[in-house]
Design a protein around this nucleic acid. Sequence first.
DNA 1: TAGGCAACCTAACGTTCGTTAGCAAATTAA
DNA 2: TTAATTTGCTAACGAACGTTAGGTTGCCTA
Lengths: 206, 206
Amino acid sequence: MEAVLSRKEQIERTATVLFKSKGYSATSMRDLANALGIEAASIYSHIKSKEEILQRVCFRMASEFFEAIDAAEADGGTATDRLRRAISAHVQVLTKNTEASAVFLHEWRHLSEPMHGTYLSLRDKYEALFRDIIRTGTGNGEFTVPDEKFAVLTILSGLNWIHTWYKPEGKMTPAAIASNLSEMLLNGLSTKKQALEDTYSHLNTI
Amino acid sequence: MEAVLSRKEQIERTATVLFKSKGYSATSMRDLANALGIEAASIYSHIKSKEEILQRVCFRMASEFFEAIDAAEADGGTATDRLRRAISAHVQVLTKNTEASAVFLHEWRHLSEPMHGTYLSLRDKYEALFRDIIRTGTGNGEFTVPDEKFAVLTILSGLNWIHTWYKPEGKMTPAAIASNLSEMLLNGLSTKKQALEDTYSHLNTI
DNA sequence: TAGGCAACCTAACGTTCGTTAGCAAATTAA
DNA sequence: TTAATTTGCTAACGAACGTTAGGTTGCCTA
């Protein structure tokens, strides 16, 4: 029951693999053509430019991340619940398409304007959804964080390395990965949590 | 009291800035020459090849990270202390040279063999130092982690995004950043730590 | 005052780059 | 059966690439 891919989709998918492993700039249209078994010029029957491929990959992944977190946020609940679900949604998207995620996370800077700017504002919008969860949690006493934005970026960068090692056939399921990450980020490594006054008091001296 | 840079060091430093902002492949020798105010061919009076610059940046940073963590590990102590100091050492190196750190972390894949392989084994050796701390901590009950390697990679990727935003003139000092990260990673976001049986029991069902 | 050397130049090399033009074969739709 | 669409080809374009060769300048040292 393999989905039939249009030639354009095949090109996009093959390019994604190459962009991940060699980087966008270091991947030539002749590299891509070779991987597809055709001539470089033939690719232009299906796409307008090399950058169009990058654009499609980046903004398709952006949509997927937004769809996933919007669905996760629809359920409401405590900030802890919401963060758990947001992390899970993010991990699901990451693991479902590791190559495209890697391109989305690392090759976006090769987008030219105005796509480059659009990407950045989408990213900020996405991070804002996480900031809102953290803000709610710190407001009602669920979370204790040094800085809202700092916390969000630490969380997201803690998630975004998954594409470097995740393999679908591995022993960790996406659900298990998400669960492990949630526990690590919510409760930390320490077996026993120190009194919060001890933990954070020295920050005041800086 | 500005240090006098040799022309070779100026080239390396300018290249590092360009490599960070445009990527190694997308930075041409003519870009670099233009930034230096000279002709591209003139660069070759000082270096052997474009890749030599990348090699020097990558392996110099590798040395800095190892020196820092070796010094941090020399003091011993509990696993919690060691992890705190290792995180601090890592953050100090990252913040001291954000451009070179970014190149070190993102452009190493453009190294050709055997440098590429050397880089990877150095990276594994570095991660092994962190794994040893985590292993000690889980062994004596200080830490509770789902998986040793998983934990180390989450920690390191949680640190390695700093170069994307850190500015020396900003309000957060490297020491404060390291402290915040240590607290987040050791104690998590949650204000109250749940009973560990509750927290981790559901992992057994996966 | 001569020699050496660091620093940079112009000119050019062979290669690769993204892309276009124009055409041919195969497949699909009417 | 014909027309349109899809998919691919060869040939080539101008530009940019990393790099080399060979020469000039100016400073420092012996």
